[in-house]
Amino acid sequence: MSINADFRQRAVVRPEEAAWTPSPTPGVEGLPLDRCGAHGACATSLVRFAPGAALARRRREDGEEAFVIEGAFTDGDGEHRQGAYLRDPRGSSHEPSSETGCLLYVKRWRFEPADAEPVSIEADAGEWRKAGEGFAIKSLHHFDGVTTFLVRLDPGASVTRMLHPDGEEMLVVSGACSDGARDYSALTWIRDPGGHAQSLSSRDGCTLFVKTGHVGAAAKEAERLGD
């Protein structure tokens, strides 16, 4: 099943307009954002664990990254609280669970073979760098032209910039923002093929999870996988 699999097109998913789908494991459900390939080789989702829910240990042949939006998540190597960022490279395995319940943003896609270092960044780690009046950036990961970072807009702040020519993906983690034509509430997901100017503002402040430089490669991978 394909979902928003044409990476040449802009895609927006608002949480109030999408449906949560129960998984075969009780207490775990997902809200799919994009998916390509017959077995979901490329997939982006919001995943929710009820308190006490757990999945069996699983192996990721291609790689997976996750951001903890709410609650606390355990992957078998430790507990990761709200604001943590995790990367499991090709061939790694983990045993996901949550004692208290959590909400995750999860991307499963084909990591480059050389991109083999696991990453675990907790919310209180890393430095917020001021990038302009009223907004700051925290770097999470960079490899071969693909960059992942958090953006924090202060109340009343605005920023105008060129989107990456190889596309960008953004999740509104908290708060709300606007591009002048549309408003985006918390948990809204936006994928853009890039290469044009974008203006964002936030009346009350917001935090964004942003990934750049990967959409063009994802489009080629989706075409290769087909359905």
Score class of each variant (00 low, 15 high):
2 S>P: 14
2 S>Q: 13
5 A>S: 15
8 R>M: 13
8 R>N: 15
9 Q>C: 06
9 Q>S: 13
9 Q>F: 00
12 V>T: 12
18 A>I: 06
23 S>C: 05
28 V>G: 04
30 G>Q: 06
31 L>R: 15
32 P>Q: 05
32 P>H: 04
34 D>C: 08
36 C>E: 08
36 C>M: 06
42 C>W: 01
47 V>D: 01
48 R>E: 07
50 A>N: 03
50 A>H: 01
50 A>V: 04
54 A>G: 02
56 A>R: 14
56 A>P: 04
58 R>G: 11
59 R>A: 08
61 E>R: 13
61 E>F: 09
64 E>F: 00
64 E>G: 02
65 E>H: 05
69 I>C: 11
72 A>H: 07
72 A>F: 07
76 G>D: 00
77 D>Y: 09
80 H>P: 03
86 L>Y: 03
90 R>N: 12
93 S>I: 00
96 P>G: 05
97 S>C: 14
103 L>N: 03
104 L>M: 11
107 K>C: 10
109 W>Q: 04
109 W>S: 02
111 F>Y: 15
111 F>W: 11
112 E>K: 04
112 E>S: 09
113 P>M: 06
114 A>D: 15
115 D>M: 10
117 E>K: 14
121 I>R: 10
122 E>Y: 05
124 D>R: 12
124 D>P: 00
124 D>Y: 10
125 A>R: 15
126 G>T: 04
126 G>K: 09
126 G>Q: 04
126 G>V: 07
129 R>Y: 00
129 R>P: 00
129 R>L: 14
131 A>H: 02
137 I>Q: 08
139 S>T: 06
140 L>C: 03
141 H>W: 00
143 F>Q: 10
149 F>M: 07
150 L>H: 08
151 V>N: 05
155 P>G: 11
157 A>V: 09
158 S>R: 13
158 S>T: 11
158 S>C: 09
160 T>L: 05
162 M>H: 08
167 G>W: 10
168 E>K: 11
168 E>T: 13
168 E>W: 12
169 E>D: 11
169 E>W: 04
171 L>H: 02
173 V>S: 05
174 S>G: 14
179 D>Y: 08
184 Y>Q: 04
184 Y>L: 12
184 Y>P: 02
187 L>Q: 15
187 L>K: 08
187 L>T: 08
188 T>R: 04
190 I>Y: 15
194 G>H: 07
195 G>Y: 11
195 G>S: 12
196 H>A: 10
199 S>R: 15
201 S>F: 06
204 D>R: 11
207 T>R: 04
207 T>N: 00
208 L>V: 02
212 T>N: 09
213 G>T: 07
214 H>S: 14
216 G>H: 13
218 A>K: 01
219 A>K: 11
219 A>H: 15
220 K>A: 15
222 A>K: 01
223 E>I: 04
225 L>I: 07
226 G>T: 11
